[in-house]
């Protein structure tokens, strides 16, 4: 599903040049659950942003479903993104002014789904993450675990082929964290490809494969059994 070859990304400021990705290459197949690990600053977030089509690489190739997307313009990337990719963030990133239902509904609005269909699908995913009873609450009124479940619901409401999760349990206690990991596992079992950046060896164990990064390069790949 994803194949990156010699991917490079360099951040420049006036004084320093930081190499975030240094000829990075790997492949992720359909239905895989991959964890990306590594110390802070090793380029994990940069990688996730490029995989999520939020940022473009300076060099290298990025095949998404066999299509070269490395040099897509903003509009094409946005279009590809909203139909294919769901995001789960460490800090949830829910919109404070919108209710649980409205937050989960947003991706459907941007892909132009009709209101009646939206209602059905949002209720379905809220049911799935067991937050339906809080559908009219605002994010601040929920616990961290509940907020992350809303975020997961929002990530999958569009039935994306790929979910990118950036330390999804980083702000949660262990029981809430486990619940979220359980959810991701279920989604993966139903066929969604998942790439997850994490610091937690515990969470990484939910994945099929761990890619370890250092200084913008992969150092090892472990296959989980």
């Amino acid at each position: 599903m994803i194949k990156i070859t010699d991917l490079e990304k360099v951040y420049r400021t006036e004084e320093v040049e930081t190499v975030a990705l240094n000829k990075l290459s790997f492949e992720v197949k359909h239905g895989e659950f991959v964890a990306v690990m590594g110390p802070s600053g090793c380029g994990k977030s940069t990688l996730l942003n490029i995989l999520g089509l939020l940022d473009d690489p300076d060099a290298g190739s990025f095949l998404f479903n066999d299509i070269e997307v490395a040099h897509f313009n903003e509009r094409k990337r946005a279009d590809l993104r909203k139909h294919n990719i769901g995001f789960v963030f460490q800090s949830f990133n829910l919109i404070d002014e919108l209710t649980v239902f409205e937050n989960a509904e947003l991706p459907l609005i941007y892909t132009g789904v009709k209101a009646a269909e939206r209602k059905k699908r949002v209720e379905e995913v809220l049911e799935k993450v067991q937050i339906m009873h809080r559908r009219n609450h605002y994010p601040q009124q929920l616990s961290g675990g509940q907020q992350q479940r809303v975020a997961v619901a929002r990530a999958v409401v569009n039935k994306p082929k790929l979910i990118l999760a950036d330390e999804p349990t980083g702000n949660l206690d262990s029981s809430n964290g486990n619940e979220v990991m359980q959810l991701l596992t279920e989604l993966n079992e139903q066929g969604t490809t998942i790439i997850m950046v994490t610091h937690s060896e515990h969470d990484a164990r939910y994945s099929h494969r761990i890619i370890r990064m250092l200084d913008g390069q992969t150092v090892t790949e472990n296959i989980m059994i």
């Binding site: 999520g52 946005a78 993104r81 909203k82 995001f87 990133n93 991706p107 941007y110």
Partner: peptide, 16 residues
């Protein structure tokens, strides 16, 4: 700013 960022990630276009 943050809200705009979220919305863009979720697929909002510039005109949205």
């Amino acid at each position: 700013k943050k809200e705009i960022g979220i919305r863009k990630v979720l697929g909002a276009t510039v005109s949205n």
